[in-house]
Design a protein around this nucleic acid. Sequence first.
DNA 1: GTGAAAGCGCTAACAA
DNA 2: TTGTTAGCGCTTTCAC
Lengths: 342, 342
Amino acid sequence: MESIPPSLTIKHIAQLAEASTSTVSRVLNGSGYVSDAVRKRIEQVILDTGYLPSSIAKDLKSQRSSMVGVIIPKINSFAASEIVAGMSSVLTARHYSVVLANTENTPKSELDYLHVFKRQRVCGILMLATEITPEHLETIRSMIVPVVVTGQDASEHGVPSVIQDERLAARQLTDYLIRCGHRRIGLIGVGDWDKQVGGERKAGYVEGLLTNGIAPVESDAVYGGFELHDGATGVDKLVPYCSDQSPTAILAVTDRLAIGAMSRLMERKIKVPEDVSVVGMGDIDISAVYRPKLTTVHYNYFNTGAAAASILVDRMHGDSRGAERQVMPFELRIRESVATRQ
Amino acid sequence: MESIPPSLTIKHIAQLAEASTSTVSRVLNGSGYVSDAVRKRIEQVILDTGYLPSSIAKDLKSQRSSMVGVIIPKINSFAASEIVAGMSSVLTARHYSVVLANTENTPKSELDYLHVFKRQRVCGILMLATEITPEHLETIRSMIVPVVVTGQDASEHGVPSVIQDERLAARQLTDYLIRCGHRRIGLIGVGDWDKQVGGERKAGYVEGLLTNGIAPVESDAVYGGFELHDGATGVDKLVPYCSDQSPTAILAVTDRLAIGAMSRLMERKIKVPEDVSVVGMGDIDISAVYRPKLTTVHYNYFNTGAAAASILVDRMHGDSRGAERQVMPFELRIRESVATRQ
DNA sequence: GTGAAAGCGCTAACAA
DNA sequence: TTGTTAGCGCTTTCAC
């Protein structure tokens, strides 16, 4: 809370231009009748002084605002920064401004930010969610402005959501592995409190196995966090040092985990993809450049953010015909981390 | 500009609690005397109704705000997103909110955003600059709130700046290459309208050569843009197809350029580092993972953003003792992309 | 301790 | 075509 040095007000301009504040307001907003002579005079004064009207006062008076709150778990990550760029792109094109809340992966603070946004009287909220708890839902429902989420599917709770078809993606990846001749496929997953990455991606893996007549084996799926070392840990669980009965391929539910897994494998002198194949999901920038280049699923995060923002803009304009649930397309990116088995 | 659905006002709370708006205001701000009985009653009503006071009205009345404008050329890039994370981290700790302007690499729009921020009556501005033109300077000077830049050095113009010691970093890198036995070192640079990356880094390269008694040769330095393909183009200029007289090492002024260069080299069956060594600058996330792992200079972007935000906060509190110019430390990251020559 | 009243910078009836 | 006036939701003297 810093005091703002006093700036010019509409009154000053009115005085300098020898007009009333309402007339100045009219030329400012291009509304109502103003004679050319007066308009010229006022415009000149505005130019000379560099006057910029306070949107704070304007917003208060007119009970409207053009600020959109954006909640992000970690702005300094590939996917999140792409999503924000996409959101920002459509929002600024429509002359909204973006208030950014970076929660640094502390879901608790998401609720705090929701409150801050409410005080700030933002006109809409965009949220990249990792987990939607009942408290989240309650707070979102108490919001009087539109909210659109991405990252998780909250459409069944009436919150418009933009999501990826995680399940189908994981299933196609599994399918691909099986077509390459793999029959024993390990999964490095995350907890299923994360419905999309934890739940759906795993479900897709199981579906892929099942539709190919392979029975999923419990111990071939391991779970952990989202970091590189979780990928390494996953490998150690899946590929024991003294055993010849380990998976020939591993599906890691994120690229980061896949890269952690590959590093660990190579550290242990296990060749990728010759000995063990690995696939990831997400197609982060590193994946195309890592050796071996990672076979993965590509999501267009920028477009995902843009789509969420578009839906929000529609809702803010009172147009609620837009889908409650938009599923973004994905693409398999076949690269070099999978070997064919006969 | 969306109309905000009407929410509770301080008047409603006053009525419900059978008190005056001033008393409610007092309990809201913990200022002035309020009897316990009345306070309890008011707090209860606030809790029951979930009332959140409008910061718009508060800001207007009290002529203060807690919004900081942040201008970024491209949020979806490694360095920028780290810097924003650092800024956001200190700003939110101090209860400021962040209004993000992603200019998508159109410097022209930086000026526009500066104006938007002025209308919004933000209490301070943080800017990640690529180029500071006279217009920029003029607009910044016309700002009545503190401005802190990073990425470029504007301290000589009275604008507090947080920068990297680009020159020393490039010089140490050049030194290192020479210590490894290289005598003919090429430079893949960028235009020197970018004073830091274009000007300073090149200056450091020349200094490094000179202090080691090597005369810089004009044709060993080439210039282009910031993209991967600019790195490739640089290589083709520096290492002609039919010549045995090409550099044994290349200093690329960014990691991205270095990676573009290495890819091109390897495409042309020139081994890195055996045939040609390559170093970059910046230590983006990919560099540690590329093969060969890139030797480069590491900057802590998160801390850079945090430092800029700290200075801004000090300035906003009226404390201008803080340095006009803060130079962030860097570290050489020796990895695998440089070979030793005898 | 508490409330009435003025006013922050702007917009929008309504008058003139 | 222009000016007067009454607020928007809050804070802050200043009386009581």
